[in-house]
Design a protein around this nucleic acid. Structure first.
Lengths: 343, 343
DNA sequence: ACCAGCAATGATTGCGCTATCATTCAGGCG
DNA sequence: CGCCTGAATGATAGCGCAATCATTGCTGGT
């Protein structure tokens, strides 16, 4: 124990070794230690070895907070999703991290909920961490959020929703197109009288818009709708299916998530309805259990892994560039309609 | 635009306003701005208002990197889970953040996988961020990890597994007890010849140990076992169920996750086996779809929300204390066996 | 009138690191 | 032999903020 350097502030806040301690032990300048650790190719092998030894000896753990301040590079990416409780977003988180972490970035997770208001506060605190990049889910930002993000000049990828005017880059799919495709599919199968059970969520709303648009083109104007609370669940699906079926003669029910669809299946079965003959059912998300349900659920598959991977890759590329402009690059990863036994 | 203060380094790295800019506009000292923002009760209302106005005018966004360095408090908690692709861990993440974020902490997410080796690297980089606290899933750490964490003196909660010697605090349940409980339940129902389908995971292993122990007490030594790859999935469950059923006359199959159990159900149904009369099935996790499957899946419910909440609360309490000792506090949140239609 | 006591504010310093420029030293060449 | 070149290393000066202590101005008690 060396007690010869009493520090004025608080006798050394952390108690742990610093770069200068390593430098002293290795007999080199602090700057050389910094280089040996961060840009080893600039340091001779002999010196590198001495530094390595000194690091081991002192138990040095770099302080990236100080490093970030000095270099204006935090090596942190903020990842903002509505929730991780939904498998689709969890998949995105998993994939984004799978790409970013091996490249030396750490991930600051933010849950922005489903409303612009929740998002606003999170964005502000996130920006105060000076992330090197941001992955942001959704696109209905408040004016303030939009302005802050644009002003911050932090590389940014919006994901999930297609969107006419991205702040920077965007990777997603069109909810509107999903709605149209679902309508198309059901119409082609001969179903006419449709109903909807949906979470109260702007993205689901877009799908309903698309659905309604396509139905209107086919001369179908009626579209009974039930909204469920948060979070979506089987019982919600079942309850709302009961309501819909009690009040309307429906041939098909479209749900904003697979879990709701499972509830609809349960209700249909309990009424002795034959699926899909008496009632067709569409989910959304292609959750792991969609294929497992009986009858197997027709649904829409969103490839969260592709979205996450592409978003991370675009972000990496952008972050690697010292100067950059907002690009407005938009990438549509599409979706696929999974036709199983319920339609 | 003011061009009167050319900075030596790089003409101001960020381009954004700093505390001193706000101070100049507000006509007060930088320190007063800092206080107005962080400890408003120390500043007069008049000054607070001027600062607020100046913040708005300059578009100031605090730099928490600098703040963290100066104060040795990062207001960041590292949250380390094996994966978020599994609903149980996603639930923990969701809950921990639900408690921590409103208290002003941000969450650095780390995915440590299921092996000590993966964990090791993540822990090191996480410590370099100087988090104010760590929530760490699992307890089979490498010696190096264990030592680093203990030495770091960062408040730490291990979660998920009970464990005889926690580094600091621990909130979890006993996998061994789960195994025993499952055995107990099946034995009580009269099932004797059991089989297991399990992921290759140390935690699942503990449950199997408990299961085997209780079976042995009942004179049942045989316990055919099949391991599945990662990630667990229905097809894996179905395939391994087929193998087990082809080679052994089983009365019940215990799975390391609900999703595997769903595969077993599918296989049983395709063979025309009556559940649970011909074959009983147990899952693990009480996933959202467990209640929805047909027949409804018996399983073990782990309350990830409680684990997350208690872990976050314990961490908050500990972080609030200026001085602290490693406490060794262990909290068992238990589990519940959910008896549905498959047993 | 004087000063203790307090609330409000300010000046100084350094958190631990890296950008930047300066220095040193071999080796090679005319 | 001086000079150039480039590789390796070092010295200096902040990055933007908050801990700490100092100062100011104001109240009320005597």
């Amino acid at each position: 124990m060396s007690d010869h350097d009493a520090k004025p502030r608080s006798a050394r806040a952390t108690g742990s070794a610093r770069l200068t301690d390593v430098a002293r032990v290795a007999g080199v300048a602090p700057m050389t230690v910094s280089r040996a650790l961060n840009r080893p190719e600039l340091v001779s092998e002999a010196t590198r070895e001495r530094v390595r030894r000194a690091v081991r000896e002192t138990g040095y753990v770099p302080n990236q907070v100080a490093g970030a301040l000095a270099s204006s590079r935090s090596r942190v990416v903020a990842l903002l999703v509505p929730t991780v409780a939904h498998a689709l977003f969890a998949e995105v988180v998993q994939t984004v991290m799978g790409v970013l972490v091996p490249r030396g970035y750490q991930v600051l997770l933010g849950l922005v909920g489903y409303t612009p208001t929740e998002e606003e506060g999170v964005i502000e605190t996130v920006l105060s961490r000076r992330p090197d990049g941001i992955v942001l889910t959704g696109c209905h930002h408040s004016a303030l959020t939009h302005q802050r993000l644009a002003a911050s000049r932090v590389p940014l990828v919006e994901i999930w929703d297609m969107h006419e005017a991205p702040i920077d880059m965007l990777v997603g799919f069109s909810h509107h197109a999903v709605g149209r495709a679902v309508a198309e599919h059901l119409l082609a199968r001969g179903y006419r009288r449709l109903g909807v059970i949906s979470a109260d969520d702007a993205r689901a709303e877009r799908r309903i818009d698309g659905l309604r648009e396509r139905l209107a083109e086919a001369g179908q104007e009626a579209l009974p709708l039930r909204r469920v609370g948060t979070p979506s669940s089987m019982p919600w699906g079942r309850e709302m299916a009961a309501e819909l079926l009690d009040h309307h003669a429906l041939e098909a029910i479209v749900c904003s998530s697979d879990i709701l669809a499972l509830g609809v299946i349960a209700e249909a079965q309990s009424r002795g309805l034959s699926i899909p003959h008496d009632l067709a059912i569409m989910g959304f998300g292609d959750s792991s259990y969609a294929a497992a349900s009986f009858p197997a659920l027709s649904t829409v598959r969103i490839d969260g892994a592709t979205i996450g991977r592409r978003a991370a890759e675009q972000l990496l590329e952008r972050m690697a560039r010292p100067q950059f402009e907002r690009s407005g690059a938009v990438e549509d990863v599409g979706f696929s309609l999974v036709d199983r036994a319920t339609t």
